[in-house]
Design a binder for these strands. Sequence first.
DNA 1: TTCCAGGGTCCTA
DNA 2: TAGGACCATGGA
Length: 286
Amino acid sequence: MDVTYDDNSITISGLAHFDLKQCLGCGQAFRWKETNGGYASALFGCEIIARQDGGTLTLAGVNQTDGTALLRYFDLERDYGAVKASYAHDVYLSEGMQYAGGIRVLRQPVFETLISFIISANNNVKRITGIVDKLCTAFGQRVDTLCDFPTAQALAAASEADVRACGAGYRAKYIVEASQMAAAGFDFDALAGMPYEAARQALTALPGVGLKVADCVCLYALGFVQAFPMDTWMQKVLCGVYGYAGKTDKQMRAFVDEKFGENAGLAQQYLFHYARTGGADCRGDQ
DNA sequence: TTCCAGGGTCCTA
DNA sequence: TAGGACCATGGA
């Protein structure tokens, strides 16, 4: 991988196991809009345009500091070839990795990830994307033609009715209360330095956050790649494909640890996207 | 009309 | 600790 910086852009060449469309369209991020041959989002206070041409990714609208953050955002320094090789023995997962082998698990801003996945409760990707977009328009800072994700302070000061008007439904109460805790000093920075289980438990102190949403924050924001968010799709896959029928969280963790090991979260993202969009029967034929 | 979607909370047994 | 009702909403 080779990285070069220009005045307001960064170019990363020599990329393998990376597909921009798959990364942004596999249900882990809700704030990138397809634009002229690329994708645009307001991130780190900039309007960023991302484009991929083969093994080269160009990120326009950034400075060198943002560029460093964006390498981390797209998880470009992890050896996904080695991760995928370690799962080559698994038939269904191999199909998933073949189906969308360019997925990388993003490392997104913590507060944005928290609120996005509070919204995800009993919801679907399309609606989550719409609600997040309305929250950004209503409460986010404008950055050129787009709006950034709202700050904790902005959402903490919002009324439940105004958040509900963005389509959040009964989750509006959780969004406002979690934002108020964040604005009051909930220590997100400390979480990344904790052991995974401790960070996961700490997150459940926030309203609207159970173990599944906590796992999403651990995986998509804090870099705990062993986190394995257990949603309805993963229940179908684990029951139908892997014959898993445990019910408690402890049983699930033990099964996932044994089956997928230290990179379980990366495996989960391939499985989730394949089960949800790949057209394969995940209810049991392996 | 009913079911489902990247679930969480609260109450009861 | 487990099970179940309830919570908004829109697309299939």
